[in-house]
């Protein structure tokens, strides 16, 4: 076994507190004249427990980045390390296992299974996880302890989205990727959803990415990445994270 140099040890420590390290990530759809460059070279690091908001207009590459980080899409070039494993090198099966163990997703349209109750939608995930929360506890965390046995059709949009959050966090993922989680919701319902995300991030220490084109939401983040034309055009650190409950849009 090769003895690591002291500098290497330090780098390893730093990497352990880093969840993601992304270098020169590009994504191109199509070829030649029809090529669409969704990502034109993105670099970033995300440390454990951070709340990161990706802000930018539609088509700026936010979702593409999140899809690659979440293991839903392949990069054209560049690397995205999840701890010390390069996600861009995973094959389909490895991506599935990665999503299954490490990533929680929240989507704009909730993507709940209509034929399962709130509790069952969460159980769907806890059944295939190694160390899950009790589904009822996960739903209680997002304030839905009274709606356990309701079907999606019996829940409001905000409630459905909170079920989706409970479902995403119930397996205690290291990262939570949320693509426009409030996109289909009004401001009042949206803030409750953001509050749930904020609470999960603080209590469970889950590294959370939130995509939005709504600048107001950026205030709840530790770090804000501004997107434009497939690149990160700016970064901002909020010294103090705003409480989601105070936001309006």
């Amino acid at each position: 076994m090769t003895r690591l140099a002291p500098e290497a040890d330090e780098r390893a420590d730093a990497q352990r507190s880093l969840v993601y390290r992304v270098e020169g990530l590009t994504k191109t759809y199509g070829e030649g004249e029809n090529a669409v460059h969704a990502l034109r070279g993105v670099d970033l690091v995300a440390s454990a427990g951070a709340m990161i908001v990706l802000l930018g207009p539609s088509g700026s590459g936010k979702s593409t980045l999140l899809n690659i980080l979440g293991g839903l899409d392949h990069a054209t070039s560049g690397h995205a390390w999840f701890h010390d494993r390069d996600v861009t090198a995973f094959d389909d099966d490895a991506l599935t296992e990665y999503r299954r163990r490490n990533v929680g997703f929240v989507f704009q349209f909730y993507n709940l299974v209509a034929s399962l109750t709130a509790r069952e939608n969460v159980s769907l995930i806890t059944e295939i996880s190694d160390n899950p929360m009790d589904p009822a506890d996960a739903l209680a965390m997002v304030g839905l302890e009274a709606r356990l046995d309701h079907f999606p059709a019996q829940l409001s949009g905000g409630e459905q989205q909170r079920v989706a959050i409970a479902r995403a966090i119930a397996k205690r993922p290291e990262v939570l990727l949320c693509d426009e989680p409030t996109g289909a919701l009004d401001s009042q319902t949206g803030t409750r959803v953001l509050a749930a995300l904020d609470q999960v991030n603080r209590e469970l220490g889950t590294t959370t990415f939130v995509i939005t084109h709504n600048a107001v939401i950026a205030d709840i983040a530790d770090e804000v990445l501004l997107f434009g034309d497939g690149r990160i055009t700016g970064r901002r650190h909020n010294a103090v994270r705003a409480s989601p409950m105070g936001l309006t849009w």
Partner: peptide, 16 residues
Amino acid sequence: ARDLASLRVLGFRRRE
């Protein structure tokens, strides 16, 4: 299709 794709995203394997 949408449910099934969601399950895949959530980490369900192909055979599942």
